[in-house]
């Protein structure tokens, strides 16, 4: 029962945003609707995980920073791809690169894959079955090592701080 309440809190906040007015009544109504949504999709929620409300709250500032950085990265990525698109002759060296992963959790892999897709020049294609490798399509794969390095050192550390 406690878990239902716990997972309902983000759904309650989301209900406020979808409805368009952020108020206590709306939040409580969303909280009430939460279990109705969670029950059919029970398998998607981790019911065995240890709960720590404090830890989740402490991660929120890092997640906000992550979102701001993400928007910056998308802007850079768009300008880069736009330059390629409007150049008179398209000169690219694309390729698929295998990038090793350190994290094994569902949430971590999802966050990293999404971040890779939205950062300059790279696009996640697939995850290996044993979750150790991410296949990344890069629009400029002339130096695969440097792409691997930049994903591991800059992105992964950053994402793990916010989501683990």
């Amino acid at each position: 029962m406690k878990r239902y309440l716990y997972y309902s809190i983000p759904l309650g906040i989301m209900w406020c945003f979808v409805h368009g007015t952020v108020s206590i009544q709306n939040f409580l109504f969303g909280l009430l609707l939460g279990p109705v949504v969670i029950r059919p999709f029970r398998e998607l929620y981790d019911f065995d995980q240890e709960l720590s409300f404090k830890r989740e709250v402490r991660k929120i500032p890092k997640q906000i920073i992550y979102f701001l950085v993400l928007i910056m990265e998308i802007t850079k990525a768009s300008i880069m791809v736009s330059k390629i698109v409007i150049s008179p002759k398209i000169d690219i060296k694309p390729g698929i690169i295998a990038v090793p992963l350190r994290t094994r959790t569902n949430g971590g892999i999802t966050a990293i894959a999404n971040t890779i897709t939205l950062t300059p020049g790279t696009l996640t294609i697939d995850v290996a079955d044993d979750r150790s490798v991410l296949y990344v399509h890069s629009i400029d794969a002339s130096y695969p090592e440097s792409i691997r390095m930049s994903i591991r050192d800059d992105l992964e550390r950053f994402v793990l701080e916010a989501f683990e």
Binding site: I92, K93, P94, G95, I96, I97, A98, I125, D126, A128, Y135, A141, S142, P144
Partner: peptide
């Protein structure tokens, strides 16, 4: 055809 590398298995 321009692709330089494919490590996908």
């Amino acid at each position: 055809a321009e692709s330089v590398i494919d490590e996908y298995i």
